[in-house]
Amino acid sequence: MTLVKFNPNLNNKKAGLMPGLNDVFDSIFNDTFFSDRMMSRVPAANISESKDHYHVELAAPGLKKEDFKLSLERDLLNISVEQTSQNEATERNFKKREFSYNSFVRSFTLPDSADENGIEAKYENGVLCINIPKREEAKVQSRQIEIK
């Protein structure tokens, strides 16, 4: 049996058997190019609720409203974009290119209290806003209660 000393105060790069190899893996997996690409594959979404509606906001700048396709299958709201990228001859060579959504699909499960027939969507200032009305029985009703 071999005992190996472990010192938590040492830097993790020095604690490995091959410090140079750890540097290579750190540079690959901690590179902002890879982490940024993983985060930017689908646009970020905000979901909120008001008294009468549910709201979905999808941040997708640089697109047109014609690029979006919204579909509803049972209680699943699908938002998709399919863009064809056109390779134009330019004089610029990109070192890093972050904003390009070629295609993506986001799906949201609607609650039972949502009224599928009244869904409205608009796209302005790079944000797709979807308003989903609540059914009448699901709306919060408030009233004053008399104290006797």
Rank of each mutant, 00 (worst) to 15 (best):
P111Y: 09
D112E: 15
I130A: 07
N7V: 04
I145H: 02
N11P: 06
N131I: 05
T32C: 01
D23I: 02
K14T: 15
N46H: 13
S40G: 11
P19R: 04
R74I: 05
D52L: 12
V56E: 03
K65W: 00
F29I: 11
D36A: 13
F94N: 14
P19E: 06
E124M: 09
F99K: 15
E124T: 11
T84Q: 14
K14C: 04
I47F: 14
T90Y: 08
L3W: 02
Y123Q: 09
T84S: 13
F99L: 15
L3N: 12
K148A: 12
H53P: 13
S35K: 12
S48M: 10
K134L: 10
I47P: 04
K139D: 08
R97E: 05
A45L: 08
E88P: 02
Q141Y: 05
R106Q: 09
K64H: 08
V42K: 14
N131H: 06
A44G: 05
E57Y: 01
A114L: 05
S113Q: 08
I147T: 10
P111W: 08
D115H: 04
V140Y: 10
F68C: 07
V105P: 00
E120Y: 01
K5R: 12
E98L: 09
T32H: 08
A60L: 01
G62P: 03
E73R: 12
D23C: 00
Q144S: 07
Q144I: 12
M1P: 07
N7I: 07
S142H: 10
E91Q: 11
D31C: 10
N9C: 06
S50R: 08
L110N: 02
S71K: 12
R143L: 05
H53F: 15
D36L: 04
D23M: 02
